[in-house]
């Protein structure tokens, strides 16, 4: 059974609001950069960068981060994650990194992303943006900016579909047919 949690407009409004929040909290865009986690996070980071540009008329650098080499579940996954490129073509040391992901769940991907980022340099700070926070954290990790909080059951899955991946913009909650 699947249910639409956000449509195109909802996603766009959430991103616009978060772009404003990022600028407000950081008092402008100085020393700011966006790094998206492959793949959904990368698309969202690019969208946030263009919204920030519309508001502040400033370009901020955008990078993409692959966390496959930093995962803690390589031994227990069914198959090895597909490795994508990490392209952070700017020096992160002393920058304020806005880390972007689509869904925040256990927090383990973010833990891996933090390790990966710190291997690239010594940023001044790292803040976290997620489109969806679905709860069930297994690590002490919290997002600074959240598009939408959605209470979920562990048996459910949340899928963020984006036009960049050839789909329509929407967020879907899939529940198993028979409640577990």
């Amino acid at each position: 059974m699947s249910k639409e949690l956000m449509n195109k407009m909802d996603i766009d409004r959430a991103l616009t609001r978060m772009a404003h929040e990022i600028i407000e909290k950081n008092k402008g865009t100085e020393k700011l950069c966006l790094v998206g986690i492959q793949r959904g996070g990368v698309h969202l980071a690019k969208r946030l960068a263009s919204k920030i540009k519309q508001i502040e008329k400033k370009d901020i650098p955008v990078g993409s981060l692959d966390i496959a080499f930093y995962r803690d579940d390589l031994n227990i996954r069914k198959e090895q994650p597909v490795v994508r490129r990490t392209e952070v073509l700017f020096e992160v040391t002393d920058l304020k990194i806005i880390l972007v992901d689509d869904v925040l769940f256990t927090g383990r991907s973010i833990r891996a992303a933090l390790d990966a980022l710190i291997d690239l340099g010594r940023p001044a700070s790292i803040q976290l943006v997620v489109l969806i926070d679905r709860g069930h954290r297994e690590l002490p990790i919290k997002a600074d900016y959240v598009g939408k909080n959605i209470p979920t059951a562990l048996s459910e899955t949340v899928e963020v579909q984006l036009v960049e991946e050839g789909l329509e913009d929407r967020v879907i909650l899939e529940s198993p047919l028979v409640p577990l």
Partner: peptide, 21 residues
């Protein structure tokens, strides 16, 4: 070959080591 391209990026960094294995 595609995976090697990603590792080549890692080898170009200051910290050339990943905790993967």
């Amino acid at each position: 070959l595609d995976t090697a391209a990603v590792f080549k990026d890692v080898l170009g960094r200051d910290i050339k080591k990943v905790p993967t294995l």
